[in-house]
Amino acid sequence: MHPVRKQRLFLVLFLVVFSSSAIGLMAYALRGNINLFYPPVQVAAGMAPVGQNIRVGGMVVEGSVQRSDTSLEMRFDVTDFEAVVSVVYTGIVPDLFGEGQGAVASGKLDEHGVLQASEVLAKHDENYMPPEVAEALEASKARMAEQAAEGGYGQ
């Protein structure tokens, strides 16, 4: 290769490597701020500020959703399977919000560690399938659980 071109090639490589590492280091330094939400385990560890607007995200605990009869107020717990944070929210939740599903709530933590949410978003996962497939999957899971409960080990 022509020496001038070789020099330019090194310049290009230098440019890419150094700008990447600069931005990479910046992203690493800011890594906490790039996260959209706190997982409950960080909230439980006291890493989330109290009285400031934050977001908490995780799985809505099965059976934890309680709705008020007279208003739009509701309570539920979110978990990352290590800690649990209770959320109080007044308003309409997205269609995809549900027990056993992901959710991100934004609001302020009160002194009891309960999140007073002003907005609740649903977080869905990367699984896409037709309803029939989902039903079949559900059914086979239930069958397996049944067999396990019957102690089908010996068979």
Binding site: V12, L15, V16, S19, S20, I23, G24, A27, R31, I34, N35, L36, F37, Y38, P39, G57, V104, L121, K123, H124, D125, E126, N127, Y128
Partner: peptide
């Protein structure tokens, strides 16, 4: 455009590296 290439892997891996609302790749 060469300086900007660093953004492409960041976009691609952002859903794995950080807590985000966007779901990971299917």
């Amino acid at each position: 455009s060469l300086v900007g290439t660093v953004n492409i892997p960041i976009i691609y891996k952002s859903v794995d590296w950080w807590y985000s609302l966007h779901q990971p790749a299917s």
